[in-house]
């Protein structure tokens, strides 16, 4: 059952393209293995589709017979994307897809991901710690803290009107070209074996009140489509 969904409906690309391809398999065999695991098509057709996917990522089709070590980091990540796309999934999950890449290559890969959204009508779940990338690529944002969703909303809501103090702290600590002052969130992420009572962010929150240590704040819709899990979310509206 899962097998039918994995790959065909939901594809996943990982952080480190250097270690995700089998070094002993040609690129072509990665594709063939994947296609044959899901569909009963001839090897010739599978190979044609593999070539198309590769070419759509800007890699020459003759290189399908090469081994992973013969490609650079950015090309390997493009191969990973091609592998994810060859089954035409409706959702692509990208887990820190550019974290191990150089800045210019990162921008190239992000451009590809954006184009895919439009060209394939595919949804994208982008997992990242880089708020700059979020601002550039995403439509909606979910902010997680210590295993809980603390805020959810459109990218504009989150960046312009953050309701949760954690989101506010996170945005303030981004170092970008216009940073004049450094900000940081006091303390460190909590121990998840014994998470703090009530709101899990309260030990680090400068607005914390007695209620925050006692009651777990529910995720409330403060504005249409803009949710936050903070007892005092309405104060920041």
């Amino acid at each position: 059952m899962y097998r039918r969904i994995r790959g065909e409906e939901i594809a996943l690309i990982f952080q480190d393209p250097m270690t995700r391809l089998n070094p002993l398999m040609r690129i072509q065999d990665h594709f063939l293995e994947e296609i044959h695991a899901h569909e009963s098509v001839s090897s010739t057709e599978a190979r044609t589709r593999a070539r198309e996917a590769l070419v759509s990522m800007g890699i020459h089709e003759t290189r399908i017979r090469n081994y992973p070590h013969e490609f650079s980091g950015g090309m390997r990540q493009r191969i990973m994307i091609a592998l994810a796309l060859v089954l035409k999934p409706s959702l692509l999950i990208a887990d820190e897809p550019t974290t191990s890449l150089d800045v210019i290559v990162e921008a190239q890969i992000l451009e590809i991901l954006q184009d895919l959204k439009e060209a394939y009508h595919m949804s994208l779940l982008l997992i990242t710690h880089n708020l700059g990338i979020v601002a550039e690529v995403c439509d909606r944002v979910a902010v997680l803290y210590a295993g809980k969703l603390v805020e959810l909303g459109s990218v504009r809501d989150i960046f312009h009107k953050p309701l949760h103090p954690y989101t506010q702290g996170l945005l303030a600590s981004v170092i970008h070209l216009e940073t004049k002052e450094l900000h940081s969130i006091e303390g460190s992420p909590p121990d998840l074996i014994a998470p703090p009572s009530g709101c899990r962010f309260h030990p680090r929150c400068s607005y914390a009140q007695p209620i925050c240590t006692e009651r777990i704040p529910p995720l409330v819709e403060f504005e249409p489509g803009h949710f936050a899990a903070c007892h005092f979310g309405d104060k920041f509206l």
Partner: peptide
């Protein structure tokens, strides 16, 4: 300098990479 993302969704711009 151009590829450094600006954390502001209103200032998205097409880049010449």
């Amino acid at each position: 300098l151009q590829v450094i993302p600006i954390p502001d969704p209103d200032r998205r711009a097409k880049k010449v990479l």
